[in-house]
Amino acid sequence: MLKVLMPDHDITTRQAVISVLVENEAGVLARVIGLFSGRGYNIDSLTVAPVDEEKHLSRITIVTSGTAMVIEQIKAQLDRLVPIHKVADLTMEGPHIAREMALIKVAGVGEKRVEALRIADAFRARVVDATTESFVFEMTGATDKLDAFTALMRPLGLVEVCRTGVVAIARGPKGIHG
């Protein structure tokens, strides 16, 4: 219904990786999440951690999707939150690196166990825990690489997956403030 009422323009959706530099203070994450839920925006993934103790800064990486108009809105809405220093759309502002980490638990014995280890090796996943009937693999990479690896592990005894969500940074010498 909403779509019918929107003006005619590009309605194809795209994914966007948005980096947000924020004041490291109580409630700032709630403001960002509340903005997304309150205005009906998608969050595909969200990560946050302090990045500069001295300047009290944290960095949030949000992967979201929407039409060009919605992505522009998301950036403008984020930018007007009081404790936000800088909003950067890494997808639009040139090439960037995006990575996430996963811990993947696989249980099995015999040929399946050997096969899991062989694939892990090909994917450069590290074994960080092992028992005679299980492994925990640690793996860092682009989202689709992690997706591919977990898909391969499923028939080999995948127990559970834990992922950090995407962190991303622009290529080249310039920082987010640049």
Binding site: M6, P7, E72, Q73, Q77, D79
Partner: peptide
């Protein structure tokens, strides 16, 4: 919205960037 002032060039002056292109391009 889709029939709002269909033939016009629109200039939007606002202090809040999030008001721009929110409803009307």
């Amino acid at each position: 919205l889709r029939d709002f002032s269909p033939g016009s060039l629109k200039i939007h002056a606002d202090i809040d960037p999030s008001s721009v292109n929110k409803n009307v391009r």
